[in-house]
Simulated assay, not measured.
Amino acid sequence: MSTLTATRPAAPAAERNTSGLTRTIASEWQKLRSVRSTYMYLSAVVLSVAVGGFVAYLMTADYDSSTPDVQAVFGSADPGQLALPVTQFCLAALAALVMTSEYATGMIRTSLTAVPARGRMFAAKAVVAAAVAAVAGLAMSFGSYFLGAAITGDRPAPIRAWESLGDAMPSLLANSASVVAMALLGLGLGAILRATAGALVAVTAILFVLPIVAQFLPAELGMKVFASLPIQLPGQLAGIDPNAVYDPWGAGAVLAAYGVVALTAGWFLLKRRDA
């Protein structure tokens, strides 16, 4: 007597790939939220908003005691001006650690054994890094806006950065987009350099050293380089920078290039090099 055994049909390749990517993303998220450095960097973002709020409070107090002619040329008390570069750095550093920490501990071999498809593993890391950066960027941007509005109250421009949330929205979204781009840049640099120190030095140079270097370049070149730096691109992307070199589309393309170029180079080297 023969026995017929029912076999379950194999899932289509596309379905298996999607399921595999979903599980890999879940695994990468589990890794990220289980390490102390994640909370340290996110706490630094919160602290930067708080410090920015304190600076805004001091500026507002100084504004109230100034003469009308001084008030007319006062800077805006926007906590986001201080919090944005700190948030860009913290999320870029955190994303770099997503790669470099595994190389430092040797866990990269375990990860590649569990997920032999290196492209899928790298894509999952990028999704997790971008998602965390988007949430952190939005929280920083909107938190800074509401804190600044509460501090400046009904005082007029220029001390009050924005008349309403609607007016501020393009800038808040552009700031958040820049944080995501810097996180992807950090992840790419982590894959390229495979060392935490090297990745942090590279991120620091891009965010804080190049703006100084740009000031010593010939005027036209220096202006172009300065306008292309991450700290200057959000204002141009939002269309609010009076000295913009790029229109919003151009600024968006340059900002995206930071993440795309770094990720492409990181993926290429991850595929080529041994763990």
Rank of each mutant, 00 (worst) to 15 (best):
Y41D: 10
D69R: 11
A50C: 03
I151C: 07
A174Q: 09
Y57F: 09
M40L: 14
R36F: 07
A177F: 03
L233V: 05
I212H: 02
S37R: 02
A199P: 01
N17W: 07
F74N: 13
G239S: 11
A50L: 15
W162Q: 06
A61N: 13
I151D: 12
T5Q: 09
G53H: 05
L91A: 04
T3G: 00
A205L: 15
A130C: 11
L82Y: 12
L42R: 02
L210M: 10
I240C: 08
T38G: 11
L172W: 02
V254A: 05
G190C: 12
R194M: 10
M40K: 00
A265C: 12
G186S: 05
Q71R: 15
T100S: 12
Y39C: 10
A214D: 03
T196K: 05
R36I: 14
F74H: 14
V35P: 01
L255T: 14
V179S: 09
V73D: 12
V51D: 04
S65K: 07
D167L: 09
Q236F: 00
V73Y: 01
L263N: 08
A50R: 02
M59K: 10
L200K: 05
P158G: 06
T60G: 04
F226I: 01
F89C: 04
T113N: 07
L47Y: 00
L255F: 01
L217Q: 10
L58C: 03
G266A: 10
L91M: 15
R272T: 03
A117L: 04
M182V: 06
G153C: 05
L233E: 13
Q88W: 01
A44K: 08
L217Y: 07
R120I: 11
A124F: 04
F142C: 03
A253C: 01
A253L: 15
G137Y: 03
T60N: 09
A161W: 01
L32W: 03
M182R: 06
F268I: 15
A61L: 13
R8T: 15
E15G: 00
E102G: 07
Q81I: 01
L217D: 04
R155K: 14
Q71H: 06
F122R: 10
A133V: 10
L189S: 08
A92R: 11
L147M: 14
A133T: 13
V86I: 14
A92K: 07
Y103A: 07
A136E: 06
V135F: 00
L112H: 02
R194N: 10
G106E: 12
A129M: 03
M59N: 11
Y258D: 11
R8W: 00
A150E: 14
G190M: 12
V201H: 03
A124S: 12
G106W: 10
L4G: 02
E15M: 01
I240H: 03
A251N: 05
T87Q: 11
V254M: 06
S141D: 12
T204L: 06
E220Q: 14
E163R: 09
P211M: 13
C90S: 14
G186R: 03
L189A: 15
Y145V: 09
I212N: 13
Q88H: 02
A183R: 10
